[in-house]
Amino acid sequence: MISFNQVSKRYGGAGGYEALKSVALVINPGEMVCITGHSGAGKSTLLKLMCAIERPTSGSVLVNGQNIGTLPASAIPFVRRNFGLMFQDNKLLYDRNVFQNVMCPLDIIGFDAADAAKRVRAALDKVGLLGKEKALPVTLSGGEQQRLSIARAIVHRPSILLADEPTANLDAAYAVELGELLRSFHQVGVTVVIATHDEQLAARLQPRRIVLEQGRITT
């Protein structure tokens, strides 16, 4: 599903900072993978390369057989639609209410309005925000915002869910809850890739572990 072949990523030209060094890995469909490591080890970069937010400096990243490095810019949106993305900073739209935020991906794909509304409600139900459709994101707690972010990530039923530090801003109880949500997606066949330095989360989910250290995979 996702395969990295001798992938390096360097920021800022030839003499710049090398975030990833000759990384090779394969993630199979339906797997749950945790990428751990210190901050600055390259976890976020790895995720960004998977969903074509960035292109590799050398090596190849294949997603469903397509080489992200050589894909034209016009094809990248269609690669992204395979993914559900959860960002470290959520990236919610604060001038839109909960319902409209989750509607976003369906708008982009071009769903029929009635069909889309059903899907949005189903996604909100799944994360327990069904009663807050009309609320603005600022009125939600940190945990709720994170769940809203999940709802938006999964509303178009992607085959891969990428989560960057999903528990970073959550207290322990919320983190457990969120872990269970991620597990439930894994159980219905979604490939889940989590970048985290939260050892407890990794321990609970018992996923396959990939440990990064200074841009290299150590296990």
């Binding site: 269609f78 992204r80 993914f83 993305l85 990236k91 982009i108």
Partner: peptide, 12 residues
């Protein structure tokens, strides 16, 4: 912000 998010989640 809106454009950035839209692009990230697959808008052409």
């Amino acid at each position: 912000a809106e454009i950035e998010v839209a692009k990230l989640i697959g808008a052409t």
